[in-house]
């Protein structure tokens, strides 16, 4: 087909817009990466944008020497692993049972679930509940309240309902109960849905900071996002302080070749890179997952 002027103009405009979008999206990541590999004092002189001017690994060495950071990193890894495993385990079992026709009380259970999608107690009652349950300052406060996701349960249920009836017949004949049928027959054929929802749950845990910031004061239990936020906040406090002279002097005294900003950037990279590395590979799963989710709406 012949291309008209309209086609050319449209294409140029669209490609230009998309290139700008791609640039604007990537630049903050790239610039942070560059700063994290650039000498702190050199960064402070300004002008570091696309390429490190004074390459150094010092910022990372500083981060990895800091026991607090390492510890926080492992807390994050632990909460992501345990939180994702427990959530997917209990939520998928729940979804499986809810997909069974003979389940007694199914309607009631469903109503219990759906109400939580529209109403919630809000921040303060939840906070006081956690306090009264003596979950404050425990590792489990990061995991237990989020184990059941009604949303994920519905996605699991929809998936399990779509499985062929014959699949579980042979297990029944062998005398398996529902529990062992679920683990031996159903789980192995549910790879995609388990992978998708595990990914979303894991990313949620990896990125979570608010729960830890209000429920945990013991610095030994803080995840990396909270530590990072505390570091960023100290920079903000520094920048917005009006009595610059006093703070700045104090700040400059503590400053060696590793500055505050470069440490923040290298910590940021440590917290970001696992996700950036994982997500392109699981892309096709989550695109599917989003669609399953939106179809349910």
């Amino acid at each position: 087909m012949k291309r008209t002027t309209e086609d050319y103009v449209l294409d140029i405009a669209i490609y230009a817009c998309l290139l700008v979008l791609a640039f604007v999206t990537l630049y903050p990541f790239w610039n942070s990466l560059v700063i994290s590999f650039n000498d702190g004092n050199d960064t402070a002189a300004g002008g570091v944008t696309f390429w490190p001017r004074a390459f150094t690994l010092e910022n990372y060495r500083y981060v990895f020497k800091d026991n607090r950071m390492i510890h926080a990193f492992w807390i994050t890894v632990a909460r992501t692993a345990a939180g994702t495993f427990l959530s997917i385990l209990f939520t998928s079992m729940f979804g499986y049972a809810m997909a069974k026709r003979g389940l007694i009380g199914k309607k009631f259970y469903m109503i219990v679930c759906v109400i939580t999608m529209y109403f919630s107690g809000g921040l303060i009652p939840s906070y006081l509940l956690i306090k009264q349950l003596h979950l404050m300052n425990t590792f489990w406060v990061l995991i237990v309240p989020g184990i059941i996701s009604v949303w994920n349960m519905i996605i699991f249920r929809t998936f399990f309902q779509g499985l062929p009836d014959g699949l579980e017949e042979s297990a029944k004949i062998d005398g398996c109960n529902h529990l062992s049928t679920f683990f031996r027959i159903v789980v192995p054929v549910s790879g995609p849905v388990i992978a998708t929802l595990s990914l979303f749950t894991a990313v949620g845990h990896w990125n979570a900071w608010f729960d830890a910031s209000i429920y945990i004061t013991n610095s030994k239990l803080l995840p990396i996002q909270v530590i990072l936020n505390q570091t960023v906040r100290s920079i903000l406090a520094f920048e917005s302080s009006t009595q610059v002279s006093a703070t700045k002097q104090e700040f400059l005294l503590g400053l060696q070749s590793v500055t505050h900003k470069s440490v923040v950037m290298s910590t940021t990279m440590v917290a970001t890179i696992p996700i950036v590395l994982v997500y392109p590979f699981v892309q096709k799963y989550f695109v599917k997952g989003v669609l399953v989710g939106s179809l349910k709406e």
Partner: peptide, 10 residues
């Protein structure tokens, strides 16, 4: 997929 902590840092 990036946390708000990191985005706000950016």
């Amino acid at each position: 997929f990036i946390s708000w902590v990191i985005v706000s840092g950016f």
